[in-house]
Every structure is written in C-alpha cells, then in structure tokens.
Design a protein around this nucleic acid. Structure first.
Lengths: 150, 150
DNA sequence: AAAAAATATATCGCATGCGATATATTTTTT
DNA sequence: AAAAAATATATCGCATGCGATATATTTTTT
C-alpha cells in the first residue's frame, strides 16, 4: 500500500498549523512591548471595532470556545484592559467593554500590522499572493465553521 | 488616524490561526479513534517516514521548540507508541524510534488524509486552490523559519 | 403556570507551546 | 590540555485551547 498521503510534505494541515505559529512568533516582539499575548490582541481588535459585546459574540468572532474565552477575558480584566459586567436585560450574558487602558492601547498597536507586512514583504513573497492566501483561508474557515453557526 | 489595519477582517494572521484550529478540529474524530492528538499524529508521520531520529530532528521538522517536543515524546512513550534511547555515539542526543504499536498505527492512519480531503472537497472549494494555498504557506514558512536554520 | 429545552457563562482537567533557565556532553578556542 | 563556547535535552511556569460538565437564566413546550 502507498503511504505518500501520510508524508508531512503532502499534508495541507501542517503548513497551516506551522505558519500560524510562525506568524504569531513574528508578532511576539511587538506584543511584548504592549505586555499582551496574541489571543489578547485579537480580543482587543474585536473590541476596538465593536465595544460592549458579549462573551459569546467574542468567542464567535474569534472562533474560540467560551471555555477558552472566559479565562482569557478574566486575565485581561486582571490586566486592567477590559471590564466584565453582567447584562441587566439578560442575566446570563456578560458584557465586555474596553477600559481606558484598553482604549489607549489602540494607538500603540496601530503600527503593528504595517510593521508585520514590511517584515514579511521585505523578502521574496508577493503581497498579491498573500491576499489570495487570505481569501482561500477565509473560504475554508466559513466552510469549516458552518456547523457552529448552522 | 485610520485604524482599518486593526480590523480582524484585514489581518493575514487571524485566518491562518483560525483555519489551523478548525482543520485540526476536523482531524479530531479520526484521531480520537486512534487515541492520539494532532501533534502526536505529526510526530508519528515524521517517524513513519524516517524512523530512529533525534529529538532535535523532530523538533526541526515540526518547527516546534524542544521544550514542547520533549514532553510530547514522553507522553507518546507512556502511550507505548515510541521508544526513547540515549545515543551511544553522542550522549547528548536521544534517539526516537517507533514501537510495534506505533508502526502498526500507520495502517489505521492511512485512510485519514483522504477522508479529510473528501470532507473538505465535498463542498465548494477547488482542490487546485488548496494546492496553491499549501504552496504559499510553505513559502511563508521557509521565509519565517529561516532564522532558526540560518 | 409548571416542566422541559435552550442559552450563556463558567469550572475542571489535560495537552500543547513557548520563554527562561538548567544540566550534561561535545567541540572549539586559547 | 584546560577553559570557553556550542550543542542537545530537559525542567519550570504560564497562557492558551478544548472536551466534559456544572450552574444560572431565559425561552419554549405541554
């Protein structure tokens, strides 16, 4: 029997998995300056776009389970980046909003995406190809994330 | 100032990160049957291709730090999937090789890649686009992994 | 209206994943 | 040859990430 399918180089998942970790490593020095982790940065990006949303909405946008997001948000609250308040209209919900510190961090973070692009683009890889990459991944994500939403 | 760069939808990293987790979730039911995790499956794939290699070589192929790989291998040894033996020629090295159980698992795993492809292809996304995706990610990986090697 | 189902968070346990650091061995430098 | 540097693993601590499960609240069913 042929086992070529089981070779690392023939896998689709491995490159996605490895690239994910490597790109996050590139973020590390910038995030270290802000004293936050990559998932915390993602939460902030969500809140900078839409402040005052529920735990569930955040976990939906980041495609993370609530049992990952709840402790993440608690750590962010402890860091003074966000506030967690039970909703009055629906006591099951917890509303997440930015603290002043969390709001101010937006300015410090503003330069990160461009610096990342420079870091990557600086060498060999065409930006258009990266845009295609993004599109394909987004198709894949909406395909695989369907079961959660449907 | 414009903050569009800080929107989730405009990021490259987030789709890679989310896709990685979602694809691994697709593997989960198949790996559960074998009683292994995704990183463990990766180690096995490396060993099925080249048995008897060092911890360092495995961590290099998987682009993981040794402080991730060492405990991973210890768990795999506890599961009876691999053997860990100090090298005689160089006492710093630890040689990792497959146990009978680890070797036999190859047959059970042989059908996984195809099943995954069917699961994804079954709907809407062209396989050629996925091959391009793989190529772009591999370029990105060799770019970002350079500092480790160079 | 009471019971059942659904929804929203949260807790627990375990496996990564990694920065910082330690230890043993080998190689290189002086 | 002794000292210094490099190499290969390993340990520690902390932050995810998730399956299983618990709890409180709201909505739906009967």
């Amino acid at each position: 029997m042929e086992y070529d399918q089981l070779k690392l180089e023939n896998q689709l998942c491995f490159p996605v998995y490895a690239a994910s970790r490597l790109i996050i490593r590139e973020y590390q020095p910038f995030l270290d300056k802000l004293g936050i982790t990559y998932p915390q940065y993602l939460v902030l990006m969500v809140l900078w776009e839409t402040d005052e949303i529920t735990v569930n909405e955040i976990s939906g946008k980041l495609i993370l389970n609530t049992n990952t997001v709840t402790p993440l948000l608690k750590r962010m609250e402890a860091l003074g980046l966000i506030k967690r308040v039970r909703s009055n209209s629906d006591e099951r919900k917890v509303l997440i909003s930015l603290s002043d510190k969390g709001k101010k961090m937006r300015e410090k973070a503003a330069s990160i995406p461009l610096q990342l692009i420079e870091k990557i683009n600086d060498e060999s890889i065409d930006l258009n190809i990266l845009m295609e990459l993004k599109n394909t991944l987004n198709s894949l994500i909406s395909l695989l994330d369907k079961p959660r939403k449907g």
